[in-house]
């Protein structure tokens, strides 16, 4: 659908060869922003629930006894770095002449995400081993709804990235791949922001 030229996606210009990408990006990316708003409401509600239930430990262990700042710092570093590497992937999409740099940066991003997820799983296992699994208390339930949901989002992002690389292998960097990378980028940075809030509210707040 080639639409009026005056509506242009204000983000990264996507180069020659696909003049209609910008018009499509306009709609696609805006739609994805709207979805992210909806998703942000989900997280906001889970944060509110967590804040409400953090003291409902029902005689069990609370945040101070359960969180391990070292592992959380590694997770945070990995995730923030992955946002940076995704930024590099976006630049590769814009400037590189071959798909290699894009794929390379996506792989690095995936690797960092794997580190993040690995440490996070380790944290969860640790909590469960300490007897603070989700069925222990209201606090544990709220924690295990909020933080793993973010983890699941990251996992979904990884599946998406792998699917995009498979698409590149089959179709090359075509319009759909470009739009896909752009939206995955939005998603990825959004998850980073959510994590910053989790880090602040759940972990630093809990240990303070």
């Amino acid at each position: 659908m080639s639409r009026a030229k005056d509506v242009r996606h204000p983000g990264l210009r996507l180069g020659e060869g696909h003049p209609d990408v910008a018009a499509d990006a306009e709609e696609m990316n805006f739609g994805f922003w709207v979805f992210l708003m909806s998703d942000a409401i989900v997280f906001a509600l889970l944060f509110a629930t967590y804040a409400r239930m953090v003291s409902s430990v029902a005689g069990g262990l609370g945040p101070e006894a359960l969180f391990d700042l070292k592992s959380i710092t590694i997770e945070t570093a990995a995730l923030l770095a992955s946002s940076f590497t995704f930024g590099m992937a976006s630049l590769a999409l814009k400037y590189a002449r071959s798909p290699r740099p894009l794929v390379k940066w996506l792989c690095v991003t995936l690797l960092l995400a794997a580190v993040f997820l690995g440490f996070e799983l380790h944290d969860f296992a640790h909590m469960i081993a300490m007897g603070a699994g989700p069925s222990r208390s209201g606090f544990a339930s709220a924690f295990f709804a909020l933080v793993p949901l973010h983890g699941l989002h990251v996992l979904a992002g990884c599946v998406w990235a792998i699917a995009l690389m498979a698409q590149i292998a089959i179709h090359g960097i075509d319009k759909e791949v470009k739009l896909g990378v752009q939206r995955l980028g939005l998603f990825w940075h959004f998850l980073d922001i959510v994590w910053v809030v989790i880090f602040t509210v759940v972990y630093l707040g809990g240990l303070a």
Partner: peptide, 28 residues
């Protein structure tokens, strides 16, 4: 989203023994 969150939490309570809305164990 609030509805999805509410039904998902109720499902977690029912299926995985979470305590969002139960009477005991800090649910509310």
């Amino acid at each position: 989203p609030p509805l999805t969150v509410a039904t998902a939490m109720l499902a977690l309570d029912r299926y995985l023994d979470f305590h969002f809305f139960t009477n005991g164990s800090g649910g509310n």
